[in-house]
């Protein structure tokens, strides 16, 4: 069992260097990198982290995280816009809308969680996929809240200002939130709740007979993950200024799964690594001559290769590199990211 526990494979030095680079990024990169690529990486990473949290600590691979992130975004859009042709146009101040958007998302997340918490493995994947399809169709058809065209002109709070004029403000907000989310998820994993959740992941029957309420823990974990996803959704709404049902369509749902898998489904850091790789491929593939308008094929091939070569994604590869380096010094230590372990396994026992 211990081999299955998610481990942080970034040592402190590496982590410190990465955080330092992230903080200094606005001095290093141009505004497009900051305002578009890196900010996108941060909030996509937050959503993917909510997926990885459920997968790594709860054994639940959820495809509803994008829907939840979208619900938060739609809530922000409906609450804060004014004078648009679509949406409720409630015209609240952006700051007042945040807690309401989070609350709505968490409420729906708990409902989804309660409905799906008795399913496991691939069934859980499917039922959460269903939720995301319902959300997509709901916002497409219910024109008073959105309709297919979506909601445009979503304002960011005053301290962020116009995202295009001050891209670094939203970037820093996203960075701080991403670090907090990471710390919070790591902390939760060590609380009694997190330990119980991991116990349930490994052996739900035993935990149940020990008196733990399995479905309740799963539901609460799902609700908590929806809170994380909602943070990403709020950031997205401010960043894009626009949200429509395609934001939470099947394509977007799979994109976030791709992000999580590229990074590594069992390591939280992988969320941001996967997001970075995904954002860069998406952005630069079109400039490669021979792919240009066929860059979706390239994305598919990269994804396929990563899934085939490294079940733990890039973090798994990183871990294995580390093992290779250490092997000489500390003989006998088991590799942490070997393919024999396979994060692809959903059932604790085969």
């Amino acid at each position: 069992m211990s081999a299955r526990r998610p481990t942080a494979s970034l040592d402190r030095g590496t982590a410190a260097v990465l955080v330092a680079i992230a903080i200094l990024a606005p001095l290093i990169f141009n505004t497009y990198w900051i305002g578009t690529l890196l900010t996108q990486m941060l909030f996509l990473g937050i959503v993917a982290a909510s997926l990885i949290f459920l997968s790594a600590y709860g054994g639940m691979v959820s495809l509803a995280q994008v829907a939840l992130y979208g619900i938060a975004g739609f809530a922000i859009g409906n609450l804060t816009t004014n004078g648009n042709t679509k949406g409720l146009n409630l015209g609240w101040t952006p700051l007042a809308a945040i807690p309401v958007a989070l609350a709505i998302t968490i409420g729906l997340g708990l409902l989804f969680g309660a409905l799906s918490s008795r399913s496991v493995g691939i069934y859980f994947l499917m039922i959460t996929l269903t939720f995301s399809v319902i959300a997509n169709l709901f916002f497409g058809q219910v024109t008073s809240l959105s309709g297919f065209g979506g909601i445009s002109g979503i304002p960011a709070p005053g301290f962020i200002g116009n995202v295009d004029h001050h891209p670094d403000r939203l970037y820093y907000l996203a960075l701080v939130l991403a670090l907090l989310v990471y710390a919070l998820l790591r902390y939760i994993a060590r609380t009694p709740f997190g330990l119980t959740l991991q116990g349930i992941r490994d052996d739900p029957v035993r935990m149940s007979s020990l008196g733990y309420n399995v479905t309740l823990h799963r539901t609460l974990a799902f609700g908590f993950a929806s809170f994380i996803a909602a943070i990403g959704g709020v950031l997205f709404a401010y960043w894009n200024g626009h949200i429509d049902p395609a934001t939470i369509g099947l394509g977007a749902t799979i994109d976030v799964l791709v992000v999580a898998v590229i990074g590594g489904l069992s390591r939280l850091e992988g969320a941001w690594l996967g997001a970075l790789v995904f954002v860069l491929i998406n952005n630069y593939a079109q400039r490669i001559g021979f792919v240009s308008d066929r860059f979706h094929t390239l994305i598919g091939v990269v994804f396929l290769v990563i899934v085939l070569l490294s079940p733990d994604g890039l973090m798994g590869l990183w871990g294995r590199l580390g093992d290779l380096r250490r092997r000489g010094e500390r003989p006998g230590q088991a590799p942490t990211g070997g393919s024999e372990r396979g994060s692809g396994e959903l059932e604790p026992t085969v």
Partner: peptide, 16 residues
């Protein structure tokens, strides 16, 4: 044909 993607691509053209 989705607004979401159009905005991303517009940013890429105009800002990058």
């Amino acid at each position: 044909d989705q607004a979401d993607t159009a905005i991303k691509e517009t940013r890429r053209l105009m800002e990058q």
